[in-house]
Amino acid sequence: MTLHRLGFIFLLYIAFSIAFLTLNARGNWDFVLSFRGTKLIGITMVAISISCATVLFQTISQNRILTPSIMGFDSLYILLQTMMVFFLGGFGFASLPQEIPFFLNFTIMMLASLALFGTLLGRSANQARQDLHRLLLTGIIFGVFFRSITSFIQRVIDPNDFVIAAASTFADFNTINTDLLLIASLMMIIALAALWHYRHELDVIALGKETATNLGIPYKTRLYTLLVIIALLISISTALVGPVAFFGLLVSNLAYQIIPSYHHAYLLPAASLIAASILIGGQVILEHLIGLSTPLSIVVECLGGLTFLLLIIRGTTR
């Protein structure tokens, strides 16, 4: 049954992709296909990054309403980006190879998440669970804090500089940063290979620190490795389209609902394909069928936000 459902989501993704590539295409097919194909790859990469990062984060925190974005990961990315523009000036920043800010942001985000989790690690299971609420609040507060500093800097910065920096504070699935596509896809292959390697251990890690340790997982080492992978995936998605707050929550919880299994070997692909189908299908429907100009990011964030509310009201914290 699990495989059937996974197959169905995959077909859905393929169908939307074909529609995305071909619908209302006029003129030079080579151009259309390569233009839309690049976009399709970019959106798919963002979908995979966001959903894998979210599922991973929920697995290690044993909590299904936390996401890296709610914890302020991508706000930190944007803040760092904006600060670089501030210090280097718009022109200085623009003349940097884009890989440099990407890796710098990734490194800082990784260190920040290791520091945050490191303080919670030594503690017993009971305390850790209580601390989860503190963790959630801390993350939300940091997120708001990072965003306010960002918007403050953007105000004092020369407006032209800001445009050059292209450090948008909201996601835009229409303008994918194609300069970074190559390096981002390389990094993503590494991250996904690592995840696939750890897929069985992830099932055990979801049982919590004590059980996982009893079953032979070097818990601390794995946790740190996974945090590095999460930071990398969030860096990729933020660099490509910008910060997405609630979308990960929507797709991870859809995956838990649709896939009747605790196996990450199914959950990770399912969440990724659901995310990609929503983004690409949403794009097709909004652009071609309804002809609406509402950005897709607003629609998915809205749905994600509703999921967040629903989960909190239902009290589903596991």
Partner: peptide, 23 residues
Amino acid sequence: TPSDELARKLAILTQSNSITARL
């Protein structure tokens, strides 16, 4: 000793077993 080697040597049932996953 590596954790996975110990896991084949020794098993523990803890006093409070709180698994949040739905199994």
